[in-house]
Design a protein around this nucleic acid. Structure first.
Lengths: 195, 195, 195, 195
DNA sequence: GATGAATGAGGTTTCATTCAT
DNA sequence: GATGAATGAAACCTCATTCAT
């Protein structure tokens, strides 16, 4: 009976994201989103014309958020980036669960795939640029900064995946050792530069 | 050992895996599996009591296959392991798509998660052992061999994820540079050992 | 006399008619009408209280138009009436499509049915009167002028139906032969009258 | 819970036809058909994969029935054909209501349209052949037998439409006068042939 | 052992309609 | 006078599951 109860599109997306992670792809139904948001299914259809549109909006939202993070990343240094990655890397991490769910969905949805791909490449590049700030040269001769960015990012995602699968995954320990490796690489870099 | 007009359990699993990757989680229906296998839905129910059972069988199958690979890995050396990882790391890679789909499913299914987790830890360990064969000592002081195994594995998965998302991901180039890093680490390891 | 940014009732009816023929009964939704008219659904409700009211207005509109035609028909002769019928009798004819759609709707809506019935009877009568002008007597003994009107009208509608169903229906040829029959009947009429 | 209760596809079509005429296009829902047939909606979907398929099956059924009638028509004579037409031409006539509903649906569905068109042409031809049996020559010079078939058929449909719209349409009277016209035309035909 | 017709719960989607603004 | 966000009922459709055969 048409009371404008002021649930904005953005809020709906937030509710949808929560639903998605809470219920998993399988049980991610529009009814669930509607119930969570306290509106009727019709309302969802008024804002997003299909379920796919809602999913795409979720990806867009993730991407926008990520862009914001990335745009900040030029100023903060690698250590902070890693700290941030670690914080998102825990059993039940909202962000990575969402990302993997979306990756799974992307296999059959090019639009989703393209958007995720874009954000991933942007993250790779942001990482490369950060590395440039602390490394005068590539620590290993023949390995481009671009590649370092790709690999660091890959490792962050890979560790997150392991953490999501394994309840007692030693996040603390692994990240600590990871930072030691970075330190060692930084030393190598300086030696390389000296030559 | 297929029966005259029948389909063996193992064959059904194979068909199911194909369906899953071909159709995606969303459209992975028992009817689709039945159609692909050329049997009726009833037949599937004869072999698996529920859809979940079928899914679990798929994970088990993946794991068995992986165990076999791992058991071999004790004998083959790191380079071959990486070559194998690379070969599975391409846009549309069947194996990694399946693995990510299963990971996504695992978030809401503890049995699946436990199995995937086990296999992942086994792989981590196999990698550690392989590294021990070529590294006399850890290349970086304070980083355990265990951690190196975890991180290498993480990177392989992370790279696969990027490759699945990005059509023109430079697999060749990245893996080549990855191998250069390993070489450099091997040198470092030798220096460490010499001290 | 359209208001600045508004849409008059008459215009809405016109848009609705177009929608109905363009989209068919199935997809004839108030949203479609609103979109076509460039207004919102609310606006339609301002002018028509229900969808049924809009439908009825469409029938009324058709009928009014038809009354106008009929009122003219007393002056123009049969040949012109037939030419007019022929022109409306082509594959994709707007008018007859609308009429048949309305007839289909009328089966479950007495108001619509009554209005369509009235206009049909008026057309029958108008045809009879026209025939009286060119026929001194009924060409066939025992057949009333009223019946001739009914039958001529029936044939015009029946031919239209065939033309709507069959893409390559030979409208030209059939109408030409129809006129020859009328001529023959006119001769008969004169003979009858002479007796 | 899966009791085969033996509702055949053919029976479902019959129930669907009844529903269609009883409820009209608008209210022709699969639930209604299911309820009428005493099965669940799922059953309908087991037999017909979509609503459109069910509609098409209805048309096919009408057409098959009509083919049967037509195949008989080569033997029975015109008078009987007209008697049959008259019997189907009454207020609430099941057959013609169905036919007009389908014609309305056909405007937006080429498959339906093509099938209806075919049956109509077959009927036209069957009528022509029947006329040949009682008319030694065309009653009006220059009017082909083919055209007579088309026009007779058109008139039968047109009269049915009027009868469906008008409760007190004088079917008896009109058909009686129609037969008189045929008689007159038969006389004309004989005169023509004599020349 | 295998089938396939049938189910029923629940999914996505549509749409006439309402009402605060 | 006009809007458009919101509704809720009901539409079409899917699918895991059952069971007589």
């Amino acid at each position: 009976m048409a009371k404008p109860n002021g649930v904005s599109k953005q809020e709906l997306i937030q509710y949808a994201k929560e639903c998605l992670v809470e219920k998993g792809t399988e049980k991610f139904t529009l009814r669930a989103v509607a119930d969570t948001a306290g509106v009727t299914q019709g309302t969802i259809y008024y804002h997003f014309r299909t379920k796919e549109q809602l999913l795409l909006s979720i990806v867009e939202d993730i991407c926008e958020k990520s862009w914001y993070e990335i745009s900040k990343s030029n100023t903060y240094v690698l250590k902070q980036a890693i700290a941030s990655a670690k914080s998102r890397c825990s059993y039940n991490s909202f962000f990575h669960q969402l990302f993997i769910l979306m990756t799974a969905a992307s296999f059959k949805n090019e639009k989703i795939r393209n958007q995720l791909s874009e954000i991933m490449q942007a993250e790779n590049q942001a990482l490369s640029e950060n590395l440039l700030k602390i490394w005068p040269a590539s620590p290993v001769h023949g390995v481009s900064m671009e590649a370092w960015g790709i690999m660091f990012n890959a490792m962050v995602d890979g560790l997150a995946m392991q953490a999501l699968l394994q309840k007692d995954f030693p996040v603390e320990k692994v990240y600590q050792e990871f930072e030691q490796i970075i330190e060692a690489l930084t030393n190598l870099s300086e030696k390389e530069a000296a030559e």
